[in-house]
């Protein structure tokens, strides 16, 4: 029996009797990070990183949570478990599972560049590595964060010069905080959508240091938004909620903006290729750094990425999971 099995409920460790990021309710769940496709309702016990806990509380309500620090080992039925920084969003972790001298690591979602918020990705040696592949094609290559931040800042300044508000679409957990980090260098007139406001509050309560923002309220007057920057989640894009910011210029921050057609389809004025996932080179670097003799490839371009690994001397197979699409489909009804 492999140490981790791929079941209908999620990744399951029989020896330790726990699941990692299950998509159905289970007894014991270890959570890589607080995005909704990885952290779901209904389990009886959740184990996560200290910084993930407040966001899980916000999103899943009160539950039986246990949180740990990175590199701190705990044991379940004699199976040794530890969490290691994944660099994806605040608190995001890879899960290392060790039993009878065999080590498996599930990456969760990850990126290699240190964004200054999420902790620097830590390569973890293992026998078997389970990796995401959201951007697992060589067309996806990211520029340095500093270069993208500079582009975003210039765009905001240009809009201010043209007397327009800057509306930036960014996933409320992770991307929004990075955008905030970028724009707070050029303006302090920043508004956020309610969903991002709630995340911000939870992060502040947990002791994160974030720039001051204002919440977009139903009674905010149009004049408040003149030349302001507004950060909103993808669900708000194209909704009547956006009308109040007119005149504005619209930008979307996502790795999918790498391809012109995706950017054009979204009808934004600008697409910033800012991703919280590893690009092609990042995935390859991460896989090689683990020294794993077997790699399982999940959510993304798993067929192409695993075939490429096989052709390059790394035994790989693809696995179907219920993860993915966080960059594309976040919807929000909170305003």
């Amino acid at each position: 029996m492999p140490l981790i099995e791929f079941t209908d409920s999620g990744l399951y460790c029989r020896a330790g009797n726990f699941y990692i990021d299950p998509w159905k309710p289970v007894e014991r769940a270890i959570i890589t990070h607080a995005h909704s496709d990885h952290a779901r309702h209904g389990s009886k016990y959740y184990l996560c990183h200290h910084k993930t806990k407040p966001i899980l509380q916000l999103r899943l309500g009160d539950n039986n949570y246990q949180s740990v620090e990175w590199n701190e080992s705990i044991s379940m039925n004699g199976v040794k478990i530890s969490l290691h920084p994944a660099g994806h969003i605040i608190g995001s972790s890879q899960i290392r599972v060790e039993h009878n001298g065999e080590v498996w690591v599930f990456s969760g979602d990850y990126k290699l560049e240190d964004d200054g918020l999420s902790g620097a990705f830590e390569p973890v040696k293992c026998n078997v590595f389970i990796t995401e592949s959201t951007f697992g094609l060589p067309i996806y290559k990211w520029k340095k964060q500093s270069v993208i931040y500079h582009d975003i800042q210039q765009w905001v300044l240009k809009n201010q010069a043209d007397d327009k508000a800057s509306v930036i679409i960014a996933y409320s957990l992770g991307k929004a905080q990075r955008v905030l980090q970028a724009i707070s260098a050029v303006t302090d007139n920043i508004f956020v959508h309610g969903a991002i406001w709630n995340t911000q509050e939870a992060l502040l309560m947990a002791g994160e240091n974030l720039p001051v923002v204002k919440r977009v309220n139903p009674d905010s007057s149009k004049a408040d938004f003149k030349n302001a920057v507004v950060i909103a989640p993808p669900g708000a894009d194209g909704s009547p909620w956006m009308k109040r910011f007119t005149p504005y210029s619209l930008a979307i921050c996502s790795g999918w903006m790498q391809v012109r057609g995706n950017a054009r389809r979204r009808n934004a004025d600008r697409g910033f290729v800012l991703s919280d996932h590893a690009d092609w080179d990042g995935l390859l670097t991460a896989v090689k750094a683990t020294g794993a003799e077997k790699v399982f490839v999940t959510h993304g371009f798993q067929a192409a990425f695993s075939k490429y690994l096989n052709e390059n001397g790394i035994a790989a197979a693809e696995v179907k999971t219920a993860y993915g699409n966080d960059e594309e489909t976040e919807t929000s009804i909170e305003v």
């Binding site: 060589p138 057609g261 192409a304 075939k307 052709e311």
Partner: peptide, 17 residues
């Protein structure tokens, strides 16, 4: 780019151009 042709084709089908 030192890529196998099949991978180039996958990229092409995804980009569409």
């Amino acid at each position: 780019c030192n890529l196998p042709l099949w991978l180039f084709d996958e990229c092409y089908h995804t980009v569409g151009d």
